[in-house]
Each structure stands twice: as C-alpha cells, then as structure tokens.
C-alpha cells in the first residue's frame, strides 16, 4: 500500500509494506516508482517527501528476504532490472526525479532504505536512525553515488568498515542533512520540503535538469547500467558462501 498526500506544493509518499522492496517485489517497486513519477509530473508539486508508514524506515534484511530477492533476480532478470535499476526503474526515477526529493528516516535504515536515501536530494532523520551500507544486499545499489555523496574514502569505509552509522556519523559524513527527534521528524521533513518548494517551478525544473547532467558526468548512470552484472556476481558470491557453509 502506498499513499500519496498532496499539500501545499509538497507530495508526501508514504510506504506501507515497504519491506516488500527488500524481497525485490517487482509489483511494489513499480507502484512506488509510479507514485514518485506521477507526483513529479504534477505542476502543483515541487517537492516529494518519501517516508515509511512503519515506525522504523527500513530494518536490516532477513535471510528469507535475501533469498526471495535472489530468486526474483534469477528467475525474472529482465523484469527485475526494469523495475529496479533501468532508467524506467524505481531508483533512477528517484535519482533523476524532476522535482526536489527528500527522505524522512527514523530507526534502522538498511538495504532499499539506504538506496532511497542515496537517491534523494535531501535527508532528515531522527536521532535514533542507523544507516547500513546497502551494497552487500542490493546489486542495484549505486556505489558511485555513495562515493559522490560521501567522498571516496568515507564511502569505502561505509562499505568495508565494520559498523552501520548512527545519525551523527551519517550527518558528519554527508549522508544526512538534518538530525532531529522522532517527535519533530515529520514536521522537520515537511519544513525542508516546503523550503525547497519556494523556488519557482521553472527553477526547480532547471535545477533538476542541470543536476541530471552532472550526475551523468560523474558515472552515476553507468553504475546503474552495471547492475545486471553485479547481480550475477552477487549470485555467484552467495552460491560460494552456501557451498562453503555446507562443507
């Protein structure tokens, strides 16, 4: 279930059952993509807030979710690619969205949640948020985008380092723009979205056009194009792990 509320030039997209993304649910990814794309198409919307209906944004993936996602990628590779990482897919529609985008995060943020954060322009989080790197779970996750957002060594530290990041670390690293309390979170997110919505509509459009060109020169689109290869590599790594554990 995905709800879209329009209010004062801001569309608030609320994900119920967001964990379906963790299982690579193609239908859910399409619904979320459509909600974002349709909102962005409205001249009455300048900013889009993405949040979860659950108290926590995106808990770490369970083993069964990983297996389910692996089955989808193996059995429907083209549909998976189209829904998640192709130019028609969820993440590129968000990264290259025509309007200002914002993620509102509370509690754990892993897998698809971290990818949604990387793909949005702005992130406001609660002080109890924790951010886990998505690369071991999602072959469609975009490491170049992480390197661009965090800078090179911080991104490598997030990928290879031992821990997820708390809200303060994420803010210091440049992943998060503002940290607040859980109680103040929804208000802070709307406030940030409305601040961006003060830009004239053509200003928003021009900004996003220029941003799209910038992201492409940085290799963001090429990294998305590599996702099917990464999916194959991840499948082989998981097979190796499974064989190793049965020895």
């Amino acid at each position: 279930m995905i709800d879209v509320d329009l209010h004062n030039l801001v569309a608030v997209v609320t994900m119920g059952d967001g964990d379906r993304l963790a299982s690579a649910d193609i239908g859910y990814a399409q619904q979320l993509r459509d909600a974002i794309r349709d909102s962005a198409d409205l001249d009455t919307v300048k900013a889009i807030v993405l949040r979860s209906a659950d108290p926590d944004f995106f808990p770490p993936l369970s083993a069964s979710q990983r297996q389910a996602a692996q089955r989808v990628r193996a059995s429907q590779p083209r549909a998976w690619h189209a829904a998640f990482c192709a130019p028609t897919g969820l993440y590129q529609n968000l990264a290259y969205c025509k309007k200002f985008t914002l993620t509102q995060v509370a509690g754990p943020c892993a897998g698809p949640g971290s990818m949604l954060v990387l793909c949005t322009d702005h992130t406001v989080c609660a002080d109890d948020a924790r951010f886990e790197a998505p690369f071991a779970d999602l072959p469609e996750s975009n490491m170049v985008l992480a390197m661009l957002t965090l800078r090179l060594n911080r991104a490598k530290g997030w990928v290879l380092g031992e821990d997820d990041w708390d809200a303060a670390q994420a803010q210091a690293a440049g992943l998060v723009n503002r940290v607040t309390t859980r109680q103040a979170l929804a208000g802070a997110a709307i406030e940030a979205a409305q601040a961006a919505a003060r830009i004239p509509l053509d200003g928003v459009a021009m900004t996003k056009l220029l941003l799209e060109a910038f992201l492409d020169t940085q290799g963001i689109g090429q990294e998305f194009d590599m996702a099917p290869l990464y999916a194959d590599a991840l499948r082989l790594a998981e097979l190796d792990d499974a064989q190793e554990s049965t020895r």
Binding site: M143, A146, M147, L152, A155, L160, G219, M226
Partner: peptide, 8 residues
C-alpha cells in the same frame, strides 16, 4: 568498489 572507483 574497484568498478565504482574506475567509473569515478
């Protein structure tokens, strides 16, 4: 990481 560094 190495692929992304190369693209980067």
């Amino acid at each position: 990481v190495r692929a992304a560094e190369s693209l980067f």
